[in-house]
Nucleic acid binder design. Structure first.
Lengths: 158, 158
DNA sequence: GTAATTATACTCGGATAATGAGTGTCCGAGTAATCGGGG
DNA sequence: CCCCGATTACTCGGACACTCATTATCCGAGTATAATTAC
């Protein structure tokens, strides 16, 4: 079980965008250059974020991406789901349907107690991710690394 | 991000083993037939469980697998880790090392606040899984599906 | 000088290959039960 | 009848192919800017 690397890229990139004026769009090329990432592939991730309504895209010169809503209204979970998709890590294939004494009418994704246990854990994971907003991360970084906002802002404007 | 199907197989199989006398070994062939699974591949998963010390294996006639310790001492997390490996889903590649103002001496898997957020979520997930033991699942199933233990036991003995 | 028009360069967006983990299969090493023979 | 030894059949264990999601890349559609021309 391994999470896509794109999640890390998206999280860092979105956080970087919080330090820019809201009306300024940044093209993929600059966002990628910031961490020496392959621009075309980061673009793919940004597309996913755009489809999820987390960022908005503008084509043409002076175009690029910007946050579609305020950092307070973007959770870490939002970004993870946008990249990884909405499905849980554990996908019950309903083994019990193949076992003895199975009822074909029952949806074992609901009834199976193992499924329920895995689902509970997944919910706990999501709850933790949903509790963190971009704004919260931004504030924490500003407190712990005061130089970061200035560095980021100037690098992305250049 | 998708969990290996082997986790589901391993969980169901271990749970089935709780309904057999502790001194009885069951060969992979029977464990696999119970859910119409490919025996050789289930065997691979059982090997992982054996390496993790969750089940013990016995070769030769009348051999097979049995639980290596009591169901009270086996958590769902133990089984998940045995199959999926100990690593977290989110693997920080330390993007910040490639960014401006990076300190080469810093381990950003520790320092990066995004890593920390993802790590907290992972810990919550693991905590939830560690709270469930095989004995607990066994008891819940016995209460909700009283016929299950008998069915399982007889099918695996046959 | 101003406004309309054309040309241009830059952006995203989706369609198309390459890679690696996960999936599935096979055969060999080792062991316990079984069968046969001898005491 | 009991004991010992060789045989046999059965088990796990790791080594070997295959599939598909993830990763990575490229080129085309569309747009705002900038230059050009006419008035």
């Amino acid at each position: 079980m391994r999470m896509s690397e794109g999640v890390e890229w998206a999280l860092h990139t979105c956080l970087n965008l919080t330090w820019l004026p809201g009306d300024q769009a940044v093209p993929t090329a600059k966002l990628a250059a910031f961490y020496a990432l392959p621009a075309a592939y980061l673009n793919k991730q940004m597309q996913a974020l755009a489809r999820a309504g987390i960022v908005s895209s503008t084509p043409g010169p002076r175009g690029g991406f910007r946050l579609a809503r305020s950092p307070e209204q973007i959770t870490v979970l939002d970004i993870v789901v946008a990249i990884e998709g909405p499905d849980e890590a554990f996908r019950c294939v309903q083994l019990l349907k193949q076992g003895p004494g199975a009822d074909p009418a029952v949806d074992y994704r609901q009834a199976c107690l193992i499924s329920q246990a895995m689902h509970r854990a997944d919910m706990a994971w999501r709850r933790e991710l949903a509790a963190q907003t971009l704004a919260g991360l931004k504030a924490d970084v500003e407190q712990q690394y005061p130089a970061a906002p200035g560095n980021t802002s100037s690098a992305l404007r250049a």
